[in-house]
Design a protein around this nucleic acid. Sequence first.
DNA 1: GTCTATACCAGGATAGAC
DNA 2: GTCTATCCTGGTATAGAC
Lengths: 188, 188
Amino acid sequence: MASDTRDAIRGVAVELFSKHGYEKTSLREIAEQLGMTKAALYYHYPSKQALLVALIEPLIEKWKVVAGRTAGLPVTHANVERILGEVLDVLLGHRAIAGMFARDAPAMFEAIGPFYQDLVDLTLRLHTWLAGPAPTTADRIRAVAATEVLGSALGWSPVIAEVSDHELRTVLLETAITVLRSADRPAL
Amino acid sequence: MASDTRDAIRGVAVELFSKHGYEKTSLREIAEQLGMTKAALYYHYPSKQALLVALIEPLIEKWKVVAGRTAGLPVTHANVERILGEVLDVLLGHRAIAGMFARDAPAMFEAIGPFYQDLVDLTLRLHTWLAGPAPTTADRIRAVAATEVLGSALGWSPVIAEVSDHELRTVLLETAITVLRSADRPAL
DNA sequence: GTCTATACCAGGATAGAC
DNA sequence: GTCTATCCTGGTATAGAC
């Protein structure tokens, strides 16, 4: 087994990192909450950054899979709905971690530049795909906005916290699709 | 006059805070870039936090004005468009600072809790107003999503950076309104 | 009124004892 | 696998030069 201690450390780490931010969470705090010393953490994870990376990796992997699927995929209504749904599932399935990327971006970048860059690049590919072939500027803005709508799932608002994952998924998916479709409407 | 030096300090501070994040920006860095010592900064601003507050204040004031306007205002098409437009103008007029709140949230909260809480409360009031009277859960989610669409103006995507403020304003305003209106569409 | 020198404490990191 | 001792950097505080 991959060590109970490591699991416990990661658990406390996600909790504190998302609550107080990465920079403001001290290793002493994490250690104290686990009943060990700062230095003991260093046995299990060689640095604060390595601990962060261990938390991040599962999200990155799933994000790669979803964004990768868009390669060469035609931008049909059905495909857009499927991809956006998968994106939402990744966000909802890793809320705490994805929320860190959304809300604690500079810390994430300073700590794990290349990994962070991977996520950014993948997101840009998603934007490009969503904008469709030969997009206008407005199409590209809407692609960003649609992604932002999905990001609402990570929000701090009580509205978001109170709603069931299922309803959140349904409404946000429909809304994001509406945003992309709004190109078809006559100009205001 | 309110001191050239203070202006210069604030200029460098916004730049570095938004580039590397608040926590990761050291006062030494700021001082060096200005050709002075760390301690000299302390003459002009009594703490790193006070410097941050000085940057933040103009945004908070404007945000208060806009969110305050919604009090008792009927949720008509025209009013929604006017308020969302004003929100966009505030965001576009304070891009760097507003971006810090969007992307560096834990740092902002740790540093200036009460001020941050003000912004959050005002934003929640905006959500509530946008959701309209007797809102369904879906209405409330869409209100959050519409706000998130406006927040796209603060994004790091090259799409956003390349587009003119005017076109960004036009498209995002129209898109946010579409999101709120999408309740009228027949269910998927 | 503006700045320098200097010292203090907290947090991340490393070496080495047990 | 866990701890003590130690180092370095960054925010902070104060004394004092100009």
